[in-house]
């Protein structure tokens, strides 16, 4: 797959000396959804803002479809749509006029039919004459998306699109993002929510302290690092595990009541059944049990912890 955004040695140091980005190298493939994960202040927004032209990089270069973001800024910016993190909208503008404004700003000829379809797709059309201040938070978020898509961009940046929105709207947002992907748009989104990256992203990048710690296909990452844990709670505490269970490499808690078995999620199903049977055979009585799946969240927390 060919890359549409290419970032080389990108660094940003603010006037106060804060290093927001440290030597970032990244290629984003055409037509993919890339999720950038990272804690607050990791540099996600700085990275996005730099590519979009809002922040000037200190070092390094970014090209969009082969064009430099500084030298050929008109070409690169015409290809990009940006949905900012904050609900930044003029209070008295109307939905219809604000999307028209965005389209004009990005040098596109007026096209009522396209904008009408766009608003309909985002369930905004019946609000087209409403003043922006009268809209709910979720609707405002949709308006921001409509503005970003008003000029038919090839690349869409979504800065925390689902921060502070309810579950239903989040799922809706995911649907919209997938639909965009189907039309060939490359999508880069930042998020705190690991489940979001897991649910919709083809690729995951982890940023912390301005460094890109990892970039990998979501599935590869999950396969590589995905483990499951079976936690068994015993009725009576024990001081030592039966020797015969050594092959499972079990872990006994200090209280002597919890046994943890870590296994590979791909192939470990059978061993669980065997282990449970053995436990019964050795006269241990199980009171409760649960299975925990290691998620992207654990992977993420581990990576960030190491980096800190």
């Amino acid at each position: 797959m060919s890359s549409i955004v290419s970032i080389k040695g990108l660094s940003k140091t603010y006037d106060n000396g804060f290093e927001a980005l440290k030597n970032i190298n990244l290629d984003i493939n055409k037509g993919e959804i890339l999720a950038l994960l990272g804690p607050n202040g990791a540099g996600k927004t700085t990275l996005i803002s730099t590519i979009c032209g809002i922040i000037t990089p200190t070092l390094g270069s970014v090209t969009v479809d082969g064009n430099d973001i500084i030298k050929d800024f008109r070409k690169t910016r015409e290809m990009i749509g940006l949905v900012p993190q904050e609900l930044t909208l003029g209070a008295f503008d109307k939905v219809w006029s604000t999307v028209n404004f965005s389209r004009g700003l990005f040098n596109r000829k007026k096209d009522d039919r396209y904008l009408e379809k766009l608003l309909k797709d985002l369930s905004l059309f019946d609000k087209k004459d409403a003043e922006l201040r009268t809209l709910s938070g979720g609707m405002k978020r949709r308006v921001l998306i409509a503005k970003a898509l008003s000029h038919e961009p090839k690349i869409l940046f979504l800065d925390e699109p689902t921060a502070g929105v309810d579950v239903e709207l989040r799922k809706d947002m995911w649907k919209i993002v997938r639909k965009m992907k189907d039309t060939g748009v490359t999508i880069i989104l930042t998020t705190h929510y690991i489940e979001e990256a897991q649910a919709i992203a083809d690729c995951v990048g982890v940023i912390n302290n301005g460094e890109l710690l990892l970039i990998e296909k979501t599935k590869t990452l999950m396969d590589r690092l995905g483990n499951k844990q079976l936690i068994i709670e015993l009725r009576d505490s024990i001081s030592i595990l039966p020797q015969e269970l050594d092959e499972y490499k079990l872990n006994l808690s200090k209280s002597g009541k919890l046994i943890t078995y870590t296994y590979d999620s791909e192939s470990g199903g059978e061993s669980v059944v065997k282990l449970l049977k053995s436990i019964g055979d050795y006269g241990l009585v199980t009171r409760d049990m649960k299975i925990e799946e290691s998620s992207l969240e654990d992977i993420f927390v581990n990576l960030v912890k190491k980096n800190d």
């Binding site: 979009c52 032209g53 809002i54 800024f73 008109r74 070409k75 910016r77 015409e78 990009i80 940006l82 900012p84 904050e86 930044t88 909208l89 003029g90 209070a91 965005s102 700003l105 990005f106 040098n107 503005k147």
Partner: peptide, 16 residues
């Protein structure tokens, strides 16, 4: 006003 409300982002990221 756009600076204050943050809507300036659109002007800054536009091809102008």
């Amino acid at each position: 006003f756009p600076k204050f409300t943050g809507t300036i982002y659109e002007i800054l990221s536009a091809p102008i």
